[in-house]
């Protein structure tokens, strides 16, 4: 699995992709997209992370087990995000408690 040798040309291409994405995220930050600014920023960051994980870290050429644990790690993080945020999103929905 780790015996797979990735040729340098792939690494250089990936690096090129990362550079383009970095410039893109920089430019987009200076354009007013309203609420979509953070969405775009995070999407680009995820794309960059994917490039790094798949090619620099060889996951593209790795066993299914590696895929499972890589995906599992990120998925667990989403559990944390998606279970913490509802509390903060819905706290103001309640009518304030009347002191008696």
């Amino acid at each position: 699995m780790s015996q797979h040798v990735v040729p340098p040309s792939v690494y250089v291409k990936v690096f090129g992709g990362l550079t383009i994405l970095m410039i893109l995220t920089w430019v987009m930050a200076f354009v007013n997209l309203g609420v979509f600014n953070p969405v775009v920023a995070v999407t680009i960051a995820i794309l960059k992370a994917l490039l790094i994980v798949l090619f620099f870290m060889n996951v593209k050429y790795s066993s299914r087990l590696t895929w499972v644990f890589v995906a599992g790690g990120f998925f667990w993080l989403l559990i944390l995000f998606f279970m913490v945020m509802p509390d903060y999103l819905s706290r103001d929905w309640q009518a304030p408690v009347q002191p008696w």
């Binding site: 995220t25 930050a29 200076f30 354009v31 920023a41």
Partner: peptide
């Protein structure tokens, strides 16, 4: 980098 440095740069 984007989450710390690039908020509301516009």
């Amino acid at each position: 980098f984007p989450l710390l440095y690039l908020i509301n740069r516009h």
